[in-house]
Design a binder for these strands. Structure first.
Lengths: 233, 233
DNA sequence: AGTTTTCAGATCGTACATTATTTGTCAATG
DNA sequence: CATTGACAAATAATGTACGATCTGAAAACT
């Protein structure tokens, strides 16, 4: 019946109900879309999803509406919901926005940074270098902590929220692929360079570095996506 | 019962049901929030809203979820929805984002603009000058057409969508207040300056002008909001 | 072959049940 | 006598079930 290859199948559990895994319906749906487990433009039928999630239709409908508000699904009246394609263009688009926003956030951070924060940043950076990409998962967490520390105290909550949303999406996508060695060394270099600029109170320099950082990260993800698409269409 | 002063009251109509006015529940709610007809942080009870809208609770719930996705309401589990305050800070936040995004969009537009488009822009500008702020409504529409023409062909749909959303919010807010004379002349000047830069193929200049344009617009709205807040708290 | 009809499938709206939170009362205690 | 704590009732959010309405496409008909 369903065109979706059974993901989150309720039948995977021991007996019947229980164990929603703690993840909300919204999150499961969102992850399926971001991770590309549902095909682009695929139709999302509430009854189907309700079965798969082990609930009734109402929670699914509300989750879909929320996802529509965030732009992950496209809904047309009386015609249901379709998943917005998360393709290279999409990544390029949000990266381009980040290239504009993150330098601004960084610039402000340089102006208000304290010694304690610099120390903490250096400590995180040391952990990252010590780990040396041995575990993608913990590396991502450390990287997130690094940037989050810089942006968290910013007054523009709207911009920071936007950054967080974009960041989550990009992170989810990049989880599909391994990070190339050259990109790894670039990341380390850029972080070090950024720290130097912050310590030297060079706001423009820090903004430039972050700009390059984001652009490089985006370019890397897009290349990997293109590669994956051409090897396994 | 409700703390919301009856807006969209169903009893305002001739007899009983009919006439939802064409506006969806989502739009009505969204407008009430943006226009400040519901107080900041006000609690939104689904049963209340359902009564007011003349429908049952389910459509209201879905509208709220969509609004949450867009960031207009804040929902906490088992505790319902509250309206996000649309205050001066909020306006400042989205304006700051626009100050970053719009110059980038404009810069690209200068690179691909055709003679026909320049002509159309000049025609719109002529209409704007001819109208000279006699009617706020049609002025807003013309201004929207002016900027929309510049951004509509841009490849980064995500950025343009973001701009449109922000633009609608700002437009709805500024509708509450009259435009000051000094701001009016600034708007005309900036548009003229922008056209000159575009015709001269001066991308950097155009970006600078748009930056000033957005910043000035934001500053104007914020000042008006502050004023209104202090005169009628 | 092209148009109309019919019908299954899916969305949308309403009503109801369940569960969690808030509120209000009253007794026990310092 | 005031304050606090526990318990009960009300209030509101969350979830389930079902009927109404719309869409899309196959089947019947001219």
């Amino acid at each position: 019946m369903s065109t979706i290859t059974s993901i989150h199948d309720a039948s995977s559990e021991g007996d019947d109900s229980m164990e929603d895994g703690g993840a909300s319906i919204y999150e499961r749906l969102r992850d399926d879309i971001i991770h590309g487990r549902v095909k682009a433009n695929e139709r999302l039928k509430v009854a189907d999803l309700a079965n798969r999630m082990g609930t009734s239709t109402n929670p699914v409908r509300e989750a879909l509406q929320q996802l529509r508000g965030e732009g992950f699904v496209i809904m047309t009246p009386n015609r249901g919901a379709r998943v917005r394609p998360i393709d290279e263009d999409f990544v390029r688009d949000i990266c381009e926005i980040e290239v504009l926003i993150e330098p601004a956030l960084t610039r402000w951070f340089v102006g208000i940074v304290t010694n304690e924060e610099i120390e903490e940043l250096e400590q995180i950076q040391a952990e990252i270098e010590g780990l040396n990409f041995a575990d993608e998962m913990t590396h991502s967490n450390l990287d997130l902590r690094f940037h989050k520390l810089m942006y968290d105290r910013h007054y523009n909550r709207h911009a920071v929220d936007l950054w967080m949303r974009h960041r989550h999406i990009l992170w989810a996508i990049s989880r599909r692929f391994p990070t190339s060695l050259s990109r790894q060394s670039n990341v380390l270099d850029e972080h070090r360079e950024l720290l130097d600029c912050i310590k030297a109170q060079d706001a423009d320099g820090a903004a430039r570095v972050i700009g390059r950082h984001v652009e490089g990260s985006g370019r890397h993800i897009i290349e990997r996506m293109r590669l994956a698409r051409h090897t396994a269409p």
